[in-house]
Design a protein around this nucleic acid. Structure first.
Lengths: 215, 215
DNA sequence: GCATTTCTATAGTCATCGCTATATAAATAC
DNA sequence: GTATTTATATAGCGATGACTATAGAAATGC
């Protein structure tokens, strides 16, 4: 069942380190996205051939799943860290956005968030579902923090934050620099603070906004 | 050179309408994204076979290019329309964001923006470049409007708007409803207004922000 | 040494996809 | 009518990608 198990002693030992391979694969997935990384690419980067790959990881999708776990425990940890940093919900959200601005900016060919954009538009529905599940978890964490101050609007307010993160991830992948991302984070944080301070807003009151709805 | 030309009279007439086919293809590309739409899918939807497809459009990428043009003249027209609607730059941007919130919400299986996400993560660099070019044009339009009030910060402020649009497009594709998108648009518009009102902000003053930069 | 276990390399399978070679059908020009 | 032009259908090409069948190499247990 469990792939990437440690070699227990008997049999020919592995010619590569599966744990280090996860890091290599993560870089590839972040640089190119799920579909554009082939098993042959990974094999070339690791110096192994397909049978070794499948013996260690089971499938490309299973490797991606493990990479996502590793990503959540490492790079993605900035979200819970920022949320738990003290202050009010507005300060917590501001930290999340500001950290994302710094972390999403391109560095060594890597930009944006693997969970948000690693499988966006992918032809493999399995990979898409894997990222979607993680994204829901992140949004739930953000909502839980906001719920401490605005329990009835927590989901809606958390949606604002995750939508902002998606925008920053896409913009970073499209070439936006750290300064540009920080400007967006600052604006969004200010907007979030304003919306949080409102008791209710037109957008929270159901369908009728200030403008007429078009076709 | 010019594909999708009108049949001038001589020769066997077309068994389908290339102009209507553009609309069908646009729907497919919006629903599934560039990579997940095969030439066979389009042929099936149009009731034609590959030779007819290639005779009419030249290639899948060329068809996508035409679809993007049609999209910009139709659906995408809301951006210049909203920008020219009068009022200040803040009001113009608010209209852009609010219209995007309404238009990006899922309807008949279509969500988000074809230019922003139609070829995101695609394996075909040609398709990616086509969307990137259009995105730059849209950002330039937004920047031109903002430059009427803040010429020295127009590009940076326009980047805030396009990043917000990318977030809304991604969120819509991920399942966000119109209400959720409108809440984000409202927050972003408020934040944009606040940043626009500032003479300068930390994010515009170069590298040093309010928080220490980490690795 | 010998059997067992595990990993590895070569080579290839199978499906998919963008695209095309060939021949045929349906229109106009004369 | 015949020639010309254009679009069509059948069938298949060439490349790619995920994955595997087979056999051989390198470790341990006895």
């Amino acid at each position: 069942m469990n792939a990437t198990k440690k070699s227990p002693g008997r049999g020919r030992p592995r010619g590569f380190d599966p744990d280090a391979a996860l890091g290599t694969a993560m870089i590839l997935f972040q640089q190119k996205g799920y579909d554009r990384v082939g098993v042959a690419d990974i094999g070339r980067a690791l110096g192994i051939t397909p049978p070794s790959f499948y013996n260690a990881f089971g499938s490309k999708a299973a490797l991606f799943d493990k990479v996502l776990d590793r990503y959540a425990d490492g790079f993605g940890q900035f979200v819970p860290d920022a949320l738990e940093g003290g202050g009010g919900a507005a300060e917590a959200v501001e930290r999340v956005l500001d950290d994302a601005a710094r972390l999403y900016a391109r560095k060594d060919g890597i930009a944006g968030c693997l969970v948000i954009d690693g499988a966006r538009g992918s032809c493999d529905p399995e990979a898409v579902a894997m990222t979607a599940r993680r994204m829901e978890q992140s949004q739930a964490m953000i909502a839980a923090r906001i719920a401490q101050e605005a329990p009835d609007r927590a989901d809606r307010l958390a949606g604002i934050v995750t939508t902002a993160l998606k925008g920053m991830s896409a913009a970073a992948r499209d070439g936006a620099g750290a300064d540009e991302l920080r400007a967006f984070a600052e604006a969004t944080a200010a907007g979030f603070r304003a919306v949080l301070a409102q008791k209710t807003s037109p957008a929270f009151a159901g369908e009728g906004g200030t403008r007429t709805a078009g076709g």
